[in-house]
């Protein structure tokens, strides 16, 4: 019975997600048709190209057809997994993006995981000990970190640790022509990952501290905390089983949404540190006016956000008993 309820809840959420993705596909398609300029002219900036040749390419890409037909065509191809050809790399967009996803996953998942764990622990401590010196200390640092833009922190780190002190590389994911393999190669990757990861951890960690702190403050003022103390529970049990358990609910929401970045990449950090991930790809696509690639990355980003939200919804139905899961009677 409960499983049936959960299944119908999951199905309803999944249908909603599919409708959302379809709407995004439409908007995504329209945005790029509304951008001024002729994509074909962008492709060939060579004066020797003749009007006929341009017309031929236009026909080949189907850009001579009316908008409705183009949309029809776009959808059909999309369903077959064809996101078009990148102007810049002259390769299928999907392939270009797929090449970048592992690097982004590596960096963002690692950094976010550290940020979530550190941020929630420090935030919980600060919230539980509101008004004490340790709270002011944690709050001060996280507010500062949270208000500094990622790219700014990244540039400062580059300047100090990579340029002045030269203990970390300036960018990239591995040393060129190093010939390293196996363990040595991974050590090299971790060394390259350190600065971009730290700047993501600091920025997102600050966000998690602030969020956990305020929801912890909220939870620790609730009557059920007094009840827990009246039971004679140890202070650590009150904190863990009663305050933290309730305070973490909003943290789960934010974590889910942030997880979308795991696929989409974090543009600022990846750009500053030349990390070859999806975020950096977005930046390059903009600089190179690579519309099909940009359109593809936008779609991947949007789908990632929708899916992450779907996962959060499903988890929420599980961890918060108050959210009635598909009870219809």
């Amino acid at each position: 019975m409960a499983l049936k309820g959960f299944a119908s809840f999951a199905i309803r959420k999944a249908i909603a997600a599919i409708i959302t993705i379809f709407a995004i596909v439409c908007v995504n398609f329209l945005i790029f048709r509304m951008v001024p300029g002729d994509p074909i002219r962008m492709m060939f900036r060579d004066p020797r190209i003749t009007a006929e040749q341009m017309q031929l390419v236009r026909e080949k890409f189907g850009l001579d057809k009316p908008l409705w037909e183009q949309f029809n065509c776009y959808l059909t191809e999309l369903f077959q997994g064809n996101l078009g050809i990148s102007f810049w790399q002259k390769r299928p967009v999907l392939e270009v993006i797929a090449d970048r996803i592992p690097q982004t996953l590596l960096l963002v998942v690692t950094a976010l995981a550290i940020a979530v764990i550190l941020g929630t622990i420090l935030g919980a401590i600060a919230g539980w000990k509101t008004g004490t010196k340790i709270d002011s200390f944690i709050l001060g640092i996280s507010l500062t970190l949270y208000s500094v833009p990622t790219f700014c922190m990244g540039i400062i780190f580059l300047l100090i640790f990579a340029f002045q002190l030269a203990i970390f590389p300036l960018g990239g994911i591995s040393t060129a022509a190093s010939g390293l393999t196996g363990f040595g190669y991974w050590k090299d990757v971790l060394w390259h990952m350190f600065l971009p990861a730290i700047s993501i951890v600091l920025w997102y960690g600050g966000e998690y501290v602030l969020l956990t702190r305020s929801s912890m403050q909220d939870a620790s003022g609730q009557d059920y905390i007094t009840t827990a103390r009246a039971k004679g529970l140890k202070e650590s049990a009150v904190l863990r089983n009663h305050a933290l358990r309730n305070a973490l609910l909003p943290v789960v929401t934010i974590t889910g949404v942030n997880l979308a970045f795991a696929v989409a990449g974090i543009i600022e950090a990846e750009t500053v540190f030349s990390w070859p991930g999806v975020g950096r790809l977005v930046y390059d696509a903009v600089m190179k006016r690579d519309y099909p690639l940009l359109q593809g990355t936008f779609l991947v980003f949007a789908v990632a956000v929708v899916l992450a939200n779907l996962v959060v919804d499903l988890i929420y139905g599980y961890i918060d008993p108050r959210i009635k899961v598909g009870k219809s009677e």
Partner: peptide
């Protein structure tokens, strides 16, 4: 109403 922990 509020004296019991809602998630336990």
């Amino acid at each position: 109403q509020n004296a019991l922990n809602p998630v336990m």
